[in-house]
Design a protein around this nucleic acid. Sequence first.
DNA 1: TATAATTTTGAGACAGCTTATCAATTTCAA
DNA 2: TTGAAATTGATAAGCTGTCTCAAAATTATA
Lengths: 144, 144
Amino acid sequence: MANKHVKEMEALKEHLGKHQLKLTRQRELILNAFLRQEHITAEAMYHQLAKADPHLGLATIYRTLNLFCDAGLAQARHFGSQTKYDNVSHKGHHDHLICTGCEKIVEFENEEIERLQEEVATRNGFIIKTHRLELYGLCSRCRH
Amino acid sequence: MANKHVKEMEALKEHLGKHQLKLTRQRELILNAFLRQEHITAEAMYHQLAKADPHLGLATIYRTLNLFCDAGLAQARHFGSQTKYDNVSHKGHHDHLICTGCEKIVEFENEEIERLQEEVATRNGFIIKTHRLELYGLCSRCRH
DNA sequence: TATAATTTTGAGACAGCTTATCAATTTCAA
DNA sequence: TTGAAATTGATAAGCTGTCTCAAAATTATA
């Protein structure tokens, strides 16, 4: 259980080493908690970790999640007014299907859509760096 | 000039009528200003309208733009921490190409992408209500 | 291992954007 | 014209996220 996220831990250590940053108890704690989720907000993580460490500050959570983004382990996504951090350490790019009924989020990837996006960009003289595609609707359960 | 947005005005009036809302001088003023733009923030509109009516409050702008969204005349889009309101009264759905260099926004629509989105949704048991697709990159000018 | 330089943390202040509050004003149906 | 109901303007408050800074933790060095 404690050794489950070795690879990501190594990736984090590598990033820390390259940037004169330090490995702290909090960063380890937050990394392990983060890797157990798919999409989570800083606030949610704050409450979740309150049991493990009641003095862990919200600012530290934000700082650390942003650090994970820099290290390529996480990716921030803005859903409405909230920012959710995705675990992208072990998977490639993906887009989202979001149920407006139960808030469920389904990930997907579609090569063909990606290709068409490139085509549109090229036609307009753009070079894409990133993109975001979110489909909002009702999942099969919420439809009834 | 004053009569240019008759159709949208009618649409607004219809919405107001259906919901026991009233047509005010401010709503007319804001509608006319709004229809002259493609994408605008409440703050920008506030400054823009300060000349026409120095006492027009920012809260009224927000309230009114949200009203336009309810009426189907506008659509709110979150770009980073800002919310931009799009004029969607006279055009169909469209997506965005956004230059991260100069903030330029280019609209586009692509039937094929839309179709593939439906396909993905169906495969996952979803029924799409709305979606958002934003491509971030550099435009031809900013690339040099 | 002890030391010192450097980074990190926690707590709360602060900032940016948006909504809520509420008395005064305006609209509109009768 | 009148009066109930909605709207406005000003500002307080809320929310999310970042900044500040003294105290604590980490890491390189001796």
